[in-house]
Simulated scan of single mutants.
Amino acid sequence: MDSKLTAYIRLLAAWPGVASRPDRALVEDSLVLLPHLDGVRSLIDVGSGGGMPGLPLALARPDLAVTLLEAEHNKAAFLIHCVATLEVVNVRVVSERAETVAHTSLRESFEVAACRALAALPVLAELCLPFVRIGGRLLALKSGPEPDGGAVGLLGGGPVTVLPAASAARSGGVILAVSKLRPTPDSFPRRPGLPNRRPLHARGGGEDGA
């Protein structure tokens, strides 16, 4: 795994615009999720960007089926290139917006949805939780605790748990963990762009439609 991780870092450095800091510390930051994936067999990385956290996790866990979801075509092309170059057989790349893909057959089909530096909690919850099956979890890598997880309940999630997850890249890093307790209402996520423009609150937020 380590040799492929090194090769992945080299690919990041050679492809402009996919990572602001293509160094080992940044890449290994993704691996703080590993202790939270015991028994997990399927994971979607929402807003994968340069492949983190999904690709390092796939390299560390060849038995884990990983979907990298990335809407920007340049970054998606890089991910496809990485998967082919590194000969990673347990990864697929989907180049589309989360708001669209979450209303396809991929809805509520993953044990874990993961993301790194994606958005504030109300936004990332709307983009990620629709992909998680009942009994699964959302795991979001963040630089520190975030207040107000009230909107998570609208999406079928339970209470937000803040788990310490320091790394060389994020000394105060945490994982925001949310269990999926109920199906996400069909109206979520809303139409593309709306989750970011009008983040959900604890009450209301769905009146704008999908």
Rank of each mutant, 00 (worst) to 15 (best):
residue 172 G to I: 10
residue 101 V to R: 07
residue 86 L to I: 07
residue 107 R to L: 05
residue 94 V to L: 12
residue 93 V to F: 00
residue 38 D to V: 13
residue 43 L to R: 08
residue 130 P to S: 07
residue 83 V to D: 04
residue 193 G to Q: 09
residue 160 V to E: 00
residue 171 S to N: 08
residue 111 E to V: 12
residue 125 A to V: 09
residue 22 P to H: 14
residue 52 M to Y: 02
residue 61 R to K: 14
residue 47 G to L: 08
residue 173 G to F: 04
residue 86 L to M: 07
residue 72 E to A: 08
residue 115 C to D: 10
residue 70 E to M: 10
residue 67 T to W: 02
residue 114 A to M: 12
residue 114 A to K: 12
residue 81 H to E: 14
residue 125 A to G: 08
residue 67 T to E: 03
residue 147 P to C: 07
residue 158 G to C: 02
residue 170 R to D: 05
residue 46 V to Y: 00
residue 6 T to A: 12
residue 208 D to A: 09
residue 123 V to H: 03
residue 2 D to V: 15
residue 146 E to G: 03
residue 93 V to G: 03
residue 171 S to K: 10
residue 207 E to G: 01
residue 152 V to R: 03
residue 60 A to I: 13
residue 100 T to Y: 00
residue 195 P to K: 14
residue 29 D to F: 06
residue 174 V to L: 07
residue 16 P to Q: 11
residue 19 A to P: 00
residue 6 T to I: 11
residue 153 G to Q: 11
residue 34 L to D: 15
residue 44 I to P: 00
residue 124 L to Q: 09
residue 192 P to H: 13
residue 111 E to M: 10
residue 172 G to L: 08
residue 110 F to Y: 15
residue 75 K to Q: 05
residue 57 L to D: 03
residue 47 G to P: 01
residue 166 A to K: 11
residue 126 E to A: 10
residue 55 L to C: 05
residue 146 E to T: 07
residue 112 V to G: 03
residue 139 L to N: 11
residue 50 G to F: 05
residue 3 S to W: 02
residue 150 G to N: 09
residue 105 S to L: 10
residue 62 P to I: 15
residue 133 R to F: 03
residue 18 V to D: 01
residue 119 A to G: 02
residue 49 G to R: 13
residue 102 A to Y: 01
residue 63 D to F: 05
residue 192 P to C: 14
residue 105 S to V: 13
residue 80 I to G: 08
residue 145 P to K: 12
residue 31 L to T: 10
residue 131 F to T: 15
residue 193 G to A: 14
residue 157 G to I: 13
residue 174 V to F: 02
residue 210 A to L: 03
residue 128 C to E: 05
residue 9 I to G: 01
residue 38 D to W: 03
residue 95 S to G: 06
residue 198 R to F: 00
residue 175 I to D: 01
residue 59 L to G: 01
residue 163 L to A: 02
residue 64 L to A: 08
residue 168 A to V: 06
residue 99 E to M: 06
residue 26 L to E: 12
residue 76 A to N: 10
residue 139 L to H: 10
residue 66 V to T: 05
residue 147 P to Q: 11
residue 7 A to I: 10
residue 77 A to G: 11
residue 203 R to Y: 02
residue 181 L to C: 08
residue 5 L to N: 01
residue 13 A to S: 07
residue 164 P to G: 13
residue 155 L to I: 10
residue 145 P to S: 13
residue 116 R to H: 02
residue 171 S to L: 08
residue 98 A to V: 10
residue 95 S to V: 10
residue 106 L to V: 10
residue 195 P to N: 11
residue 8 Y to T: 12
residue 67 T to G: 03
residue 170 R to L: 05
residue 134 I to K: 08
residue 160 V to W: 00
residue 115 C to N: 06
residue 135 G to T: 14
residue 178 V to E: 07
residue 196 N to R: 15
residue 118 L to I: 13
